[in-house]
Lab assay of single mutants.
Amino acid sequence: MSIQHFRVALIPFFAAFCLPVFAHPETLVKVKDAEDQLGARVGYIELDLNSGKILESFRPEERFPMMSTFKVLLCGAVLSRVDAGQEQLGRRIHYSQNDLVEYSPVTEKHLTDGMTVRELCSAAITMSDNTAANLLLTTIGGPKELTAFLHNMGDHVTRLDRWEPELNEAIPNDERDTTMPAAMATTLRKLLTGELLTLASRQQLIDWMEADKVAGPLLRSALPAGWFIADKSGAGERGSRGIIAALGPDGKPSRIVVIYTTGSQATMDERNRQIAEIGASLIKHW
């Protein structure tokens, strides 16, 4: 067993022997301040990774656009098919120029040779490549099948209805392509620590998230040296922004954090800054 596999296998073990965790309302004060600064709703939840206990939450059962955070769930569904012998990570998928959609920095470079399922998941999570996500959605049967996968996990809230990039439209009061912070946090925890996926697939999923290259201005910008984070960000229309993450000190994750916002007129930089400040408060009061 590799060191990384050992780390993920012992996530519940280490967490069980940690000192009790206590909620700190100071972080919620910052979440509410972010709402004021952005002029928009902000949803927040913080779960203990081992027990699933909610440590703090704000608007945990209000719907927010998922945006690209759905790509972690998508690759979880792909990995479940791999575990069941219905898919192979090494299978190569070929596609054409007509398949390319807006923001496809990886797939646009491989029109000639195609990409493997493993490479597509890596591109979808680490670079948020939209064509990679659409190609992977095709392998599982489309958005409705991802929703069905989530329902089978016990998540009857999260739903995907459309493809990239239309799913980022974020129309107010439109339930399409949305989740709730509580539902997303619980589902992410199941994917990373539950028995739904094999140990190898859980490790692969967290490795992809740990290698995320496009979430630097968010929670990662607030992390002290030595902290662990595996995350996936999302951005959408109407001032929408979000991030889902597993993080913790001492090089291992111990909490799940989900943050979503929508309806702001603020710039992307300002949305990023507010999420980073929430992260800084979380870490300060850990």
Rank of each mutant, 00 (worst) to 15 (best):
L137S: 12
T261M: 14
E35L: 11
D212I: 11
G194V: 07
A200K: 15
I93V: 15
I256T: 03
R238P: 07
E195Y: 15
L146C: 13
G216Q: 05
G141P: 10
G39S: 03
T107R: 01
C121K: 00
S122C: 06
G90F: 13
E145L: 12
P172M: 11
E164H: 00
T112S: 10
L135V: 07
P224W: 02
I259E: 01
L137Q: 07
V106N: 15
A123D: 07
I256C: 12
L89R: 09
L55R: 08
P105F: 05
L111F: 03
L150S: 10
P60D: 08
D129I: 00
R271Y: 07
L74K: 01
E166A: 14
T261S: 10
A200C: 15
I275A: 08
A40K: 08
Q265I: 12
T179V: 02
L150G: 08
T198W: 05
F149N: 10
A124Y: 00
D177R: 00
F70G: 13
V117N: 13
K71R: 00
D250T: 02
Q203F: 15
L136I: 13
N130Y: 00
I125V: 03
E26M: 15
E62W: 02
D83S: 04
Q204K: 02
T193L: 05
V157R: 11
T69W: 00
Q86C: 05
R59I: 01
P181M: 03
Q204N: 09
N173E: 04
A133Q: 00
G236T: 06
Q204C: 14
G39M: 04
D155T: 02
D212P: 11
P105H: 03
G76L: 07
T138Q: 10
M184H: 04
R220F: 15
R159G: 09
E46C: 15
A84Y: 08
S264C: 09
S240D: 08
A183K: 15
L160T: 12
I45G: 07
S122M: 03
K109P: 06
N168Y: 02
L111Q: 08
P217T: 14
S51T: 06
R91A: 14
L135R: 08
T139W: 07
S104T: 14
A215G: 10
T138I: 14
T193Q: 08
A34L: 05
R238K: 02
L160M: 11
S128H: 00
L135F: 05
G242P: 00
V117I: 12
E237W: 13
Y260S: 09
A235N: 14
V214W: 12
H285I: 02
R273F: 11
A215C: 05
A182Y: 04
L188T: 06
R271N: 11
L55M: 03
A170N: 03
I171W: 15
G114H: 08
N134G: 12
T267K: 04
T267R: 04
K30F: 11
T112F: 13
E46I: 15
S281F: 03
Q37A: 04
H94Y: 04
S80N: 15
E237F: 09
H110S: 14
S51I: 10
R176Q: 05
P224D: 06
W163A: 06
L79K: 01
M153I: 03
A124W: 00
V101C: 08
Y44C: 06
D33Y: 02
P249H: 08
T262Q: 09
R189M: 03
H110F: 15
W163C: 03
T179A: 02
Q203Y: 02
E195G: 10
M115R: 04
V29M: 13
A170Q: 11
T262P: 03
D113I: 06
T126F: 05
W286P: 04
N130F: 00
G226I: 03
E46W: 14
D212A: 13
E164P: 00
L111C: 05
H110D: 13
A230V: 08
S80Q: 15
L74C: 10
E164V: 00
G154N: 12
E237C: 14
